[in-house]
Amino acid sequence: MSINITITLNGKKKTLAVAPTQSLLSALRNNAKAKEVKDGCSDGDCGACTVLMDGKAVNSCLVLAPAADGSEIVTVKGLGTAEAPSAVQESFVNSGAIQCGYCTAGMVISATAFLNENPDPTRTEIREGLSGNLCRCTGYQKIIDAVANAAKKNHSQGE
């Protein structure tokens, strides 16, 4: 049995036939082929699958796909492009915050949502804000740098 849900994925309307118990993560990866959303644990522990759902960062593995019906989903591909990357994306590259890159998609989404809520954070606040996203490569140092640098840039542009 499947249910049709309609979501807006990175600005495009999509109708997906999902099972009642299917996760949003699975619907995004397997139905919508949004492979940029990563599966690290399917259990809500690692944050690799984080997407923006109606502007809020969620672990897409913990959201049932039918519950996402009608919502607006943004993945890392919806944040920016090569020609026009988001400030957070640009900062992750320039700060050396990317190693294997597997946590990056979720990390960048969490950082984006966090900076929307708290545009001028301290480093400790950034650490708290990203504590749901595991990274095994970087030791987090350059990720924290990247978010702090993006905040600084937003700040100076805002002034």
Binding site: T75, V76, T81, Q89, V93, G96, I98, A105, V108
Partner: peptide, 18 residues
């Protein structure tokens, strides 16, 4: 900046499971 960083941050890198 690493030469592979842009494709990763834009979500374009295709890993084995993708």
């Amino acid at each position: 900046p690493r030469h592979d960083a842009w494709e990763k941050v834009l979500g374009n890198t295709s890993y084995a499971g993708d």
